[in-house]
Every structure is written in structure tokens, then in C-alpha cells.
Amino acid sequence: MGSLLHTWILVSFFLVLALVHEAKSAAFRPSAWGNAHATFYGDDSGNGMGGACGYGNVYSSGYGANTAALSTVLFNSGYGCGQCFQLQCTNSKWCTKGSSTTVTATNLCPPNWAQDSNNGGWCNPPRTHFDMSRSAFTKIAQMQAGIVPVMFRRVPCIRTGGLRFNFQGNDYWLLVYVMNVGGGGDVSSMWVKGSKTGWISMSHNWGASYQAFATLGGQALSFKITSYTNHETIIAYNVAPANWQAGMTYGCNVNFR
């Protein structure tokens, strides 16, 4: 009996260790440093800086001033939306020494094929480039520079509260923008469940938006979301009430780490 009890305790101990290891491994870790260049755009209003990701005004959507538009290779057809990057100016007389800043990807910096990649076409593939908000850029370099070389790395997105879902569409077509994503900051796939349905797979529309062609009007809605970076899946139950409306944003109490 004592031998069986001892075996059971050992098995339980290693099971707990495995679960702790799995929980820790699910949390996003910073990446290695890479090289890129950075410019700046926009004004201090925040309008249009949520652009291609669909976040709208970055202040009202909770992202604030520290944002950037990504070149095509980083934007990755919208799967780069919401990712967080630490940037540090390097090898330029315009750098602010010892300073760095963290930005959230909220927009696409489109190619400019009329300009050479090394002379104006900064976001042309395959260049890795950040077009930062003006306030974010001036934290690492002086505006007179226009463009500076930077070191960058992916870092965890530190968010307050849970995921937020902005609804568009109608009773038969639901388009959802996913915001305030923690951890890796990104989303690879998504499902919706009505109070009268099973889980329905949503297709990637563009940026940070997912859509479902289904009759979901008059039902409370839950969502299942998988991170693009960590492949972790979380479920947000009863996010929106049965009388949900397009144009509204609904929150929950779960998020990625």
C-alpha cells in the first residue's frame, strides 16, 4: 500500500511539473534582435493610424501613441496586426542614446514602386521597415533624421483587461475586429458560437478582422481565438448579449499572456 501511495505521489508531482512547464511555455517570449529602418508618419490625432488593421483611432481603441505601420514582409497579410516590437535607433548621429520604445503594429506601410527601395520606397518588399507614429519615433531619434537604422525585436504585448471585439455586419454576416490582444498580440484563427449553434469557423477577412456568414442575430455570442505566434487557444464565453449590435465593442475577461 505504501509503495502504491509513493508511486501515486511521484506521478502527481511530475504531472504538476508538466502542467506548470506547459503554462510557462504558453507565455510569449521576446525574440532575437534584428535590423531594420524606421521613418514616421501621421499627426497627434491618432486618426487613420489604425488603418489596415481596422483599429480606427488608436487612442479610442486603446493603443495610444506608440504605434507603427509595418512593411509588407512584417504585416504578413494582416497577421502581424497587434504584434509588439521594441525598437532602438542605431548607427546614426540622430539617435537618442540609450533610449528605446515599444510599439504596436496597427497599420500597413504600403510599397511605393515609383521609388527605389533605398531612396523613398522604404516599405518595398523585401525590406523590413517600421513607419512609426511621430511621437514614438521622437523617443528614439530626432525628427530631422527622416529615416534611421534600428534594431528591433518582438516583445510581449502588455495589455490591461481582456480581449475586445468590435462588431460590424448584420444578423447574417458578422465581421469582428479583435483588439487589445496580449501575449504575442496576434490572432491566427477564430470561431464564433451562438447560444443556439455549435462552434462556427470564421474566415480571415483582412487585418485583425474575422468574419462568419451565419445567422447569429438574437443570440448571445462566444468566441474561441488562437494566437498566430504561440498557437495557444483561449475561449471567451458570452462576450456579447443576444441583443448585440453592429458598431458596438464588447469586452471579456480573458487574454493571452
Rank of each mutant, 00 (worst) to 15 (best):
V148T: 04
W122D: 03
W94D: 15
F152A: 10
S71A: 11
Q83W: 04
Y63C: 04
N112L: 14
K139W: 02
T72A: 13
V150E: 10
S77C: 07
G120P: 02
A65R: 12
G48D: 10
S117V: 06
A114Y: 06
F137V: 00
S135V: 11
A141V: 10
T128H: 11
G120Y: 00
C95E: 09
T102C: 12
N76Q: 13
N124T: 11
L74V: 04
W113D: 07
N124P: 11
I140D: 06
N66S: 12
T138F: 00
S77R: 14
S71F: 00
V148Q: 05
M151H: 13
T96I: 13
M132H: 10
A68M: 06
C109K: 02
V103R: 09
G50W: 01
Q83S: 15
G62H: 08
T101I: 05
A69F: 00
C84W: 04
P125V: 02
A136M: 05
P149W: 05
N119Q: 11
S100T: 15
C109G: 04
N66C: 13
T67N: 12
P111H: 03
T101R: 05
F85P: 02
Q115P: 02
A114S: 14
R127S: 14
P149L: 00
Y59E: 11
C109I: 01
T104W: 00
K93S: 15
S100N: 13
L74A: 07
V148Y: 09
P111F: 03
F152D: 09
A145T: 13
S60Y: 06
Y59V: 03
Y79D: 08
V155T: 11
R153N: 12
